[in-house]
């Protein structure tokens, strides 16, 4: 067992555990913190896969910005556990059964049919961080310039939308 593989297995365990922690915790704040942990482990996976830029984006945008936003909203709305509900009694067992089916099907399909040729990943050492950044930047600002600009407009629109949605209307209430 190589060092890489060991690292992977440990991290995978942490990732699954933290995801389950988010799924099962009663308190929304705990859930958010578990998710942060999960995102950070995924960021490490990106490093292992030779994508340092994405790893950093993952940490700053997801684990940083997005989750902080979540925490703010949780603070705003309260993190208490919800009272028990009697509607949809069949929801939980059905959901678990079907999810397990989905996981099995998806993994099987991805591994057997959708997988690209060549089934081992390159060792992480081969990828030079500066080179990766340079190429990524080049691609982003040449071939993908238009999508890039469109995304910037999308972010602006989302910002305006968020403000408009949460703004209290004058004299409405």
């Amino acid at each position: 067992m190589t060092l890489d593989l060991a690292l992977f297995l440990v991290l995978a365990l942490v990732a699954v555990a933290s995801a389950l922690g988010m799924l099962l915790s009663r308190n929304a704040v705990y859930a958010a913190l578990y998710l942060v942990l999960n995102f950070v482990t995924v960021a490490v996976f990106y490093l292992l896969l030779g994508a340092p830029f994405i790893a950093m984006a993952q940490v700053t945008v997801y684990a940083g910005a997005i989750m902080v936003l979540f925490l703010f909203v949780i603070m705003l709305l309260g993190s208490d556990a919800l009272p028990k509900s009697q509607v949809l009694p069949w929801q939980k067992p059905l959901a678990i059964v079907m999810s397990v089916l989905l996981a099995a099907e998806a993994a099987y399909l991805l591994v057997t049919k959708a997988k690209p040729a060549g089934d081992v990943l390159p060792p992480a050492e081969l990828v030079n961080t500066t080179e990766n950044l340079r190429q990524l930047g080049n691609a982003l600002f040449t071939d993908y310039l238009l999508p890039f600009e469109v995304v910037s407009i999308l972010l602006l629109v989302a910002m305006v939308g968020a403000i408009v949605l949460t703004k209290k209307e004058k004299g409405a209430r």
């Binding site: 989905l102 996981a103 990943l121």
Partner: peptide
């Protein structure tokens, strides 16, 4: 040397 399958399976589990 990590087989890509591992990542895929992990991804499927997280997705589920």
């Amino acid at each position: 040397m990590i087989p890509v399958d591992y990542y895929i399976i992990l991804s499927a589990i997280l997705f589920t």
